[in-house]
Structure formats: structure tokens, C-alpha cells
Design a binder for these strands. Structure first.
Length: 672
DNA sequence: TCCTTTCGTATTTTT
DNA sequence: TACGAAAGGA
């Protein structure tokens, strides 16, 4: 798409003041943003380093950078920053850590690190049940996203759970600071607080950003919005692009109302709507529009397309979940054979990750190549978490959390009893655990044998840390992995040698990522050190780049959330049932509107064909449950749907279909 | 201290 | 069903 339509053009050329672009699904918003950046540089005389574009995912940032790179040549574009909110926050903290009261080499605590810390805290200080931690973690995160301090949280607490959570919150913040750690929310929150307190530092950053662009603006939370406002300052030159109908992250603090708040905050706000869709058939858009009309709207828009009307939306009701997955698998295979379609043109979307399991089995059975997007992440793997904890500990001796994770992994015969004594000693003398290990007076607190083991571990880590700082950090890391016989440990803890090998490969991938990250920093003459490399690793940055390269021909499996921003010629949405697509929890919490938007996002991923499936019976907690078709199906225009398996279709057609399916399968088995 | 077994309980989405 | 936590035995 080389030419912009009038609306898009208008959005591109609106360069003074505040601009809100309401970009419907598939309306070419990435084109608008990238073209606008090019326009700013080439027509408005801005330099690349004066422009900042913010996204939510690394992938979006990478894509945008790439596309701008194609449009802008020469050095005017140099220094352009396209980054995620979290990466920007990390960079700010990196530069200003001293003003924020952090020491060098701070650790980023990811969600599971935080949970471990909270468990420890509640156990020790509050005698609360460990399983109360997940809700507490959630509440703390929400408070931080809304810039609520522990004191305010306690004052505004509703009921005993919230009061407890607020007290844990206070202790958590203290401990995190003590550990020289920041969590994900801090990556935004700390810069915002800093900017509130230090006008001079804020000005420094404001001067660097002459123009700001924000993608997926409906996903911003309160602190992110504040950060945007702060950076923009009095100049108020910025463009935000978003779509309230695609707001599906309210549960993690996103405030779609940030869209309408803009009007109040910037009275001269220019609002531009992009409604022409370049992706889907007319019918898919009609169905999507009709569904989303069931939600109340602040800004109402209707997508349209000059493409053909397209094929009916198929809705297939299956006997059970097994038949559902099987049906999708054979359907894909059949369409692949009949139309010579690539496998990568198909996507199977679902609400929850667990739904991928059956689908995977069926695809395997029919030898259909597939790729699961999301689910069990690289960083969720124990071996990766272990090594990351070692890295964090090397860089940040105060990270007791990392210490606790790996003191006894691999086994060093340092058990609960010894650890308790160590923890007591450390808190008595107010030193970190790793420091305590190296103090000789610790020997009085425990048996000689235990002391010897603990001490050995401490000096081992210390010498590695020193070595990493002195010469090649990568060599130090490799040596560390060798010296602790991690491979041996993998062999012991894996289900078999092939498994162990795979896990070691993950470890190697991690080290390689670290290396490329460091090399790159050296190239750019950015004085980034190992700490930065590890920090960025925690933010998933590097690994994703490696995953990127395989663009093999595979069916894509992912959650509806993960599908946002993507598009496929043929889309399957599975599990179109009450309690699953409007998810039970969301129904109970009265969040059906967000579920409807989720469904909308799914529908609008499809370019040519859309197939929705449901199972009449589904296994739940081990027993078969009768399901009800999703209310969203009733909200779609019946004339555009072609039902199958509901019992009211033309019998002749049914036979015809059965035969077609059979023929397809026969062809397949002939191939095998 | 570590490993096995048993029991109980929960399946939403993720930067 | 499938995983994690607690408890008990080596």
C-alpha cells in the first residue's frame, strides 16, 4: 500500500499539537505511524533523535523500526528511538538510578520473582497463607499502575484482604529496594515519580523528545499515560494511535478511557478516524461491526472495505472438544490440499492456552506443521530461570531472591535448616545472604560442615563476579555453568537424555543471546555492560529476535490476546461457548464487554475466511459438561453465518459435505 | 537432606 | 486430568 487514503494523509500531516488517531482494525495504522515518522524527518526538518515512538511489544517496535528504515535513508533519521514503554523506562532508570536511590547492577524482578518474594514475605511477616499471594501480587500491581502508594492503599483498603495486601505492599516495596530490585511496574512508575520530583531531570528528557508517537494507545495504564504527558510537556506535540474496540488488557491495568481523557487534557485535540479496512472481506467486517455494536461506545466507528463480500462465516458445532480439534485439523489439511494454500495462511485462535493441547495432538496426528505462539515461554523454563538467577546474583549481590533460588540448585546440600540460620544471621547483621556466606563469624551460627558448604558457595560466586567484571563476562558465565556441573544436573532432573540435551541447548541459547547483546552494545559504542544485557534479557528483547527467523510454513496457534495486531487469510476461532469465550470469570465479574472485544479482535484477524467452532460437550475438571453456544454467536447477523452440526441444516447439503470431507481425507491417506 | 508418594485442588488473558 | 504442595520414609 504505497498511497495513503485522505484520512491517513490527514493523520500523517497533522504535526502540530495533540492528535488522536482512532484506527480501526486493519486500517493501516502502522503505515500511518511509520509514514508520519518519515514525514517528520523529511518534510518537517526534525532529526531522528528528536523523535520517540512507543509501543507495547518488542515485536511491534522491531517491525516499526524496520519499516521506517525502508522509508528514511541517510543520516537525518539517525538516533530515532522506537521502543517499548518498558524498555524506555529501563533506559531512564539506567541513566538516573542514582537519583532514584538504586545502586548499580539492579535486578529486574519478573512476575515469578515477585511471587517468590511475596510468598517469603507473607510467610515470615504476616503468617498469611501462601496461596493468598497471587491475588496480593495482582492488587499490588494494580496499585502501582495507578500510582497508589502503600500508605494510600492502606487508607483506602476495602475489607481485610485489601488491608493485608496493602501492608504486604509496604513491606514488599521496602524489601525490593533493599534487594536493589525493580519490578515490571517500577519500570514505568519510577521514572514517573522521578519526573514528578525532579523538574531538572524531566526537562532533560523533554528536550530530547520533540515529537512523541504512541501505538496501541488504548492499552496504556495510568502511569504510562502520565509518562506520556510528562515527556510531552508544554509542547504538546504528539500523536497517539489506538482503537477502543480492541482494548483487551483492562485486566492488567490498561485504561481505554485514556482515549477520551485526552479530550479533556488537550482541548485542541485533533481526532481522526480511520475506518477503511484493507484486510478483510466485506462480510467479515459486517459481522465484526454488528458484534461490537453490542458494546456502548464513546467514539463509534464502522469499518468498511472495497473488497468483495466474501464467503459466509462458517460455524461448526462439534460433538465434543476432541471432534472439534479433529475437525479443524482435517479442515486445514483439506483446504491446504484443495487450494494449494500455505499452512502459514491458517491461524487457530483460542481463549486459553490449555485449549492448544488437543489441537496440537490432532495436528501432529495429521502431520500438519504448526507453531504455538506464547504459552510456555522460554523464560518460564526452569533451566532458563536458574541461569538467569545466577546472572542476577553475579551482578547484584543484594538480590537475595536470586540467591535463594539457586543456592541449592544444583544440589549443594544446603537445606532448609541451614538456610534458616543463614537468613537469621544476615538479617541480624543487615547484610545480604551472599555477603553473610563469606563472613567468618557465621561459623558460630551453624555446624562446621554446613558453614563450609555455604562459605564455599559464597566465595565461588564472589570470584566469578569479580572475574566477570575484570575480563570477558561471557567466559565467566560459561565457566560458571561448567564448574557447577549444570549439565549433570540437567541429566538428573530431566525425564531423559534427549530432554536434558534440549534444556542445555536452551541454556546455550541464553548465553549466546547475552553475547550478541554485549557485542551489539560494543558496536554501537553504547557503554552498556553485562547488567544491561541481562536486564534486556528479562524484558524478552533478545530472544524474540532469534525466534523471529523461522518463517517456515506452519499453521499458527495462539490465544486471542496474542493474535492482536496480526492477520491471516484463514482464521479458525475455537471454543465459541459460554463460559469459555465470554469466560466464566469475566461473566461473574461483569466484564463481558471486554470479552466481546476479544471476540471482535479474533474476527478481524481474518482476511478471507473465518470459521468458528464449538464443542457441545467438553471435559471440565475431569468430567463431561454440556456446553452452551456463545452469546456472541447470537449477536452476529444470522444471514451471514452458515451453521453446521446444529441439526437444522439441509440434509442433502450435509451428505455432500460429509463426502467432500471424506474425499479430502482419502487423498491424504493416499499420500501417507 | 532428599526423594517418593499421596492427596487435593484448580484451568484467562501477559508487558 | 494434571499439576503442585505437603507429608512421610530412607
Amino acid at each position: 500500500m504505497s498511497r495513503l487514503n485522505p484520512r491517513q494523509q490527514e493523520a500523517m500531516q497533522a504535526v502540530s499539537g495533540a492528535v488522536l488517531v482512532l484506527a480501526g482494525a486493519g486500517s493501516g495504522k502502522t503505515s500511518v505511524i511509520t509514514r508520519k515518522i518519515a514525514y517528520l524527518i523529511e518534510e518537517c526538518g526534525l532529526k531522528g533523535h528528536q523523535i520517540l515512538a512507543l509501543t507495547f511489544t518488542n515485536k511491534a517496535a522491531r517491525e516499526m523500526k524496520e519499516r521506517v528504515g525502508q522509508l528514511v535513508t541517510g543520516k537525518a533519521g539517525k538516533g530515532l528511538t522506537v521502543s517499548t514503554f518498558h524498555n524506555l523506562g529501563l533506559n531512564i532508570i539506567r541513566r538516573e538510578y542514582a537519583a532514584l536511590g538504586y545502586r548499580p547492577g539492579f535486578s529486574i524482578f519478573d512476575a515469578s520473582d515477585v511471587l517468590a518474594l511475596l510468598k517469603d514475605l507473607t510467610h515470615k511477616e504476616f503468617e498469611a497463607a501462601e496461596d493468598a499471594c497471587e491475588p496480593i501480587q495482582y492488587m499490588i500491581s494494580n496499585w502501582k499502575n495507578d500510582l497508589v502508594t502503600p500508605v494510600q492503599a492502606l487508607a483506602g483498603a476495602n475489607g481485610p484482604e485489601q488491608a493485608l495486601a496493602a501492608r504486604v505492599y509496604e513491606a514488599y516495596e521496602k524489601t525490593l529496594k533493599l534487594y536493589n530490585g525493580v519490578d515490571f511496574d517500577d519500570l514505568i512508575l519510577q521514572p514517573v515519580k522521578l519526573f514528578q520530583e525532579r523538574e531538572d531531570i524531566l526537562q532533560k528528557w523533554q528536550n530530547r523528545v520533540r515529537y512523541l508517537l504512541v501505538d496501541e494507545y488504548q492499552d496504556t495504564n495510568s502511569s504510562q499515560y502520565l509518562l506520556v504527558k510528562q515527556l510531552v510537556g508544554m509542547r504538546s506535540n504528539f500523536t497517539v494511535v489506538g482503537d477502543d474496540d480492541q482494548s483487551i488488557y483492562a485486566w492488567r491495568g490498561a485504561r481505554p478511557e485514556n482515549l477520551s481523557i485526552l479530550r479533556a487534557d488537550y482541548p485542541s485535540l485533533k481526532v481522526i478516524m480511520l475506518e477503511q479496512n484493507y484486510r478483510s472481506t466485506g462480510r467479515i467486517l459486517k459481522v465484526a461491526n454488528e458484534l461490537i455494536d453490542h458494546n456502548p461506545h464513546e467514539f463509534s466507528k464502522a469499518l468498511w472495505s472495497d473488497k468483495s463480500y466474501g464467503e459466509p462465516i462458517r460455524v461448526i458445532s462439534c460433538r465434543n472438544e476432541d471432534a472439534e480439534a479433529e475437525r479443524i485439523a482435517t479442515e486445514i489439511l483439506q483446504q491446504h490440499l484443495q487450494n494449494q494454500g500455505d499452512f502459514k495462511d491458517f491461524a487457530v485462535l483460542y481463549r486459553g492456552n490449555h485449549q492448544s493441547r488437543l489441537m496440537e495432538m490432532k495436528l501432529q496426528a495429521y502431520k500438519v506443521p504448526y507453531k504455538i505462539n506464547g504459552g510456555q515461554s522460554f523464560f518460564g523454563r526452569t533451566e532458563v530461570k536458574d541461569i538467569m538467577a545466577y546472572l542476577k546474583l553475579l551482578l547484584n549481590p543484594a538480590d537475595d531472591n536470586a540467591f535463594l533460588r539457586i543456592v541449592n540448585t544444583p544440589r549443594r546440600e544446603i537445606g532448609a535448616a541451614t538456610l534458616e540460620k543463614l537468613v537469621n544471621y544476615a538479617s541480624m547483621h543487615s547484610v545480604s545472604l551472599i555477603e553473610a556466606c563469606q563472613e567468618s563469624s557465621l561459623s558460630h551460627a551453624m555446624s562446621n560442615a554446613a558453614y563450609a558448604r555455604v562459605n564455599e558457595f559464597g566465595s565461588w560466586i564472589a570470584s566469578l563476579a569479580e572475574q566477570a567484571e575484570r575480563d570477558d563476562p561471557i567466559a565467566a558465565v560459561r565457566q560458571m555453568i561448567r564448574e557447577m556441573d549444570y549439565e549433570d544436573w540437567m541429566l538428573q532432573t530431566s525425564s531423559g537424555p534427549p530432554m536434558a540435551e534440549k534444556r542445555m541447548a536452551n541454556v546455550e541459547l541464553l548465553v549466546e543471546s547475552l553475547k550478541t547483546s554485549l557485542d551489539k552494545a560494543v558496536d554501537k559504542n553504547d557503554n552498556a555492560d553485562m547488567g544491561d544485557a541481562v536486564a534486556r534479557l528479562v524484558l524478552l528483547d533478545i530472544l524474540e529476535r532469534q525466534e523471529e527467523e523461522d518463517d517456515t510454513d506452519r499453521v499458527q496457534l495462539m490465544t486471542l490476546h496474542a493474535a492482536k495486531g496480526l492477520e491471516y487469510p484463514h482464521v479458525f476461532m475455537m471454543g465459541m461457548e459460554e463460559d469459555l469465550l465470554p469466560h466464566r470469570n469475566s461473566i461473574d465479574e461483569g466484564n463481558v464487554e471486554e470479552e466481546r472485544r476479544l471476540c471482535y479482535v479474533g474476527i478481524t484477524r481474518a482476511r478471507q475466511t473465518l470459521t468458528m467452532t464449538l464443542a457441545r460437550k467438553r471435559k471440565q475438571f475431569g468430567e463431561m459438561i454440556e456446553t452452551t453456544a456463545s452469546r456472541f454467536l447470537d449477536e452476529l447477523p444470522a444471514d451471514d453465518l452458515e451453521w453446521e452440526g446444529r441439526g437444522d441444516e439441509d440434509p442433502a447439503k450435509k451428505v455432500e459435505k460429509g463426502q467432500a470431507a471424506l474425499a479430502g481425507l482419502k487423498g491424504l491417506f493416499a499420500d501417507l
